[in-house]
Amino acid sequence: MNSDVNISGTSLVYKIKGELDDHMAVKSRERIDDILLRREIKNIIFDFTELTMMDSAGIGLIIGRYRIIKDRGGEVLLVIGNSPAKKILRMSGLMKIFKAYDNLDAALTAVEHRVYG
């Protein structure tokens, strides 16, 4: 599967490579929600830096995970870099709702400061 999962403290880093369409969104949803059930995750960081395409299924994936995470007092962060997904994220207003970062380190630093600082 074209995705990597990494857990850093209470944050789940989910990296998707290639194309995020309906097919990939369903698979990602299953994989993330399974981890959310089993682990004490507060924040989800979507790493889209190696994404080459995203359609509306990606919007659904992000908002759906946010609904789960917000009940735990956590948040969703987006790492976008130069991904073409930027256009859709901006169009759909998601860039206004979620914090977006250029690289993963910046997003990880941001959550760590919030949790421990």
């Binding site: 194309e19 309906d22 395409m53 995203m54 359609d55 509306s56 299924a57 073409p84």
Partner: peptide, 21 residues
């Protein structure tokens, strides 16, 4: 251009997904 290609791919994805779902 890369941007036009991405726009086309995304639009196809939307229309085909709608047929399926």
């Amino acid at each position: 251009t890369m941007e036009d290609m991405a726009d086309i791919r995304t639009s196809i994805s939307e229309a085909v997904t709608n047929c399926i779902v």
